[in-house]
Simulated scan of single mutants.
Amino acid sequence: MSAIYRLVSKLVYNRLTIKFYEWYLGRQIANGPKPSHVGLILDGNRRWANQLGLDHAAGHMAGAIKARQLLEWCLDLGIKTLTIYAFSTENFKRPKEEVDAITKIFKENIEEALNKNVIEENQVRVTVMGRMDLLPPDITQLVRKIEAASAKYDKFFLNIAFAYGGRAEIIDAVKKIATDVQSHKLEIKDIDEKEIEKRLYTAHLPKSDADLIIRTSGEERLSNFLLWQSAYSELVFTDIFWPDFRKYDLLRAIRIFQKRERRLGA
């Protein structure tokens, strides 16, 4: 009985300590500038699963649950735009059973978001950024449905980069420009950064450039994520695997962001 009591006491103490730390960090960042657009590279699901002796599908499921928590944290903090890197065009090279598991989890989460009115309650505009033609028709139909259902909202923007690649995004924008030039809708002399940004996947956002990009799992690279939009982003890398990411990890990243001097090239 005493062993159980000690275990419960330790768990309660740890939880209270974490809550206090979150409160402390919240106080530290309360009066500083907060990033209006945060990008997050959700990395480490498979290694997290390997550590626990689980299959990779379990890691991706845990990662999806964590992504829902992340959305809640960003809503609480007043971060207007969140872009998460969930699945890249390169990830299609993984084993078929893993790709199928990831797309199944993605589909289930979209269905849950639609059925639970999460989007309406929080007035979240959801956009799935990527090559939709690479996904099964039932998933693309769901994507269109959730995008249409949330298109009227502008309180918060959630962008899910799925079947996404930063180079592919720029290529698609260039193709649109070439088409507009060919059809005489655009003059070559008028092509500038704004014209390119109008044709990127993030064109609908109030601020397409990411202020802060966070990557989990210890890797320190962008891996083809928001290549155009990250030109002046602050980058924060953390060793923790994505399923273990905690609210105070997000708060610490924002504190790092606030301590940096952002000159934006000036």
Rank of each mutant, 00 (worst) to 15 (best):
M1W: 03
S2C: 01
R6M: 06
L7D: 08
V8H: 01
V8P: 00
K10G: 09
K10M: 07
V12A: 13
N14I: 07
Y21T: 04
Y24D: 12
Y24I: 08
G26A: 10
A30E: 14
K34E: 00
H37R: 04
V38G: 00
G39T: 05
L40S: 00
L40R: 02
I41E: 03
I41D: 05
D43T: 11
N45R: 10
A49Q: 10
N50Y: 07
D55Q: 15
H56M: 09
A58M: 14
M61C: 07
I65F: 06
A67E: 09
L70E: 05
W73Q: 11
C74Q: 07
L75Y: 11
D76I: 02
D76Y: 11
L77G: 02
G78N: 06
I79M: 04
I79D: 03
K80W: 02
K80M: 09
T83H: 00
F87V: 04
S88K: 05
S88L: 02
T89R: 09
P95L: 14
K96V: 15
A101M: 12
A101V: 11
I102H: 10
K104N: 12
K104A: 14
F106H: 10
E108W: 08
E111P: 09
Q123M: 13
T127R: 12
L134P: 07
P137K: 15
Q141R: 13
V143I: 15
K145M: 15
E147C: 08
A148Q: 15
S150D: 10
A151G: 00
K152C: 07
D154K: 08
K155I: 00
F157V: 06
L158E: 03
L158Q: 06
L158N: 05
N159L: 06
A161R: 07
F162T: 01
R167Y: 06
E169F: 02
A173F: 12
V174D: 02
V181Y: 08
Q182W: 12
Q182D: 14
S183F: 09
H184M: 11
D190V: 05
D190L: 04
I191E: 14
E193T: 11
E193M: 09
I196D: 04
E197H: 01
K198D: 10
R199G: 05
A203L: 01
L205T: 01
L205I: 03
D209K: 11
D211C: 00
I213E: 01
I214C: 04
R215D: 01
T216E: 11
E219K: 12
R221F: 03
R221C: 09
L222D: 08
S223F: 09
S223N: 07
N224M: 03
L226A: 06
W228D: 05
Q229D: 10
S230T: 05
Y232L: 03
Y232M: 03
F237R: 03
T238R: 05
F241G: 01
F241H: 08
F241A: 03
P243A: 08
Y248R: 12
D249F: 01
R252N: 05
A253Q: 02
I254S: 01
R255W: 10
F257G: 00
K259I: 00
K259R: 15
K259E: 11
R260I: 03
R262V: 02
R262Y: 02
R262M: 04
R263I: 06
A266I: 12
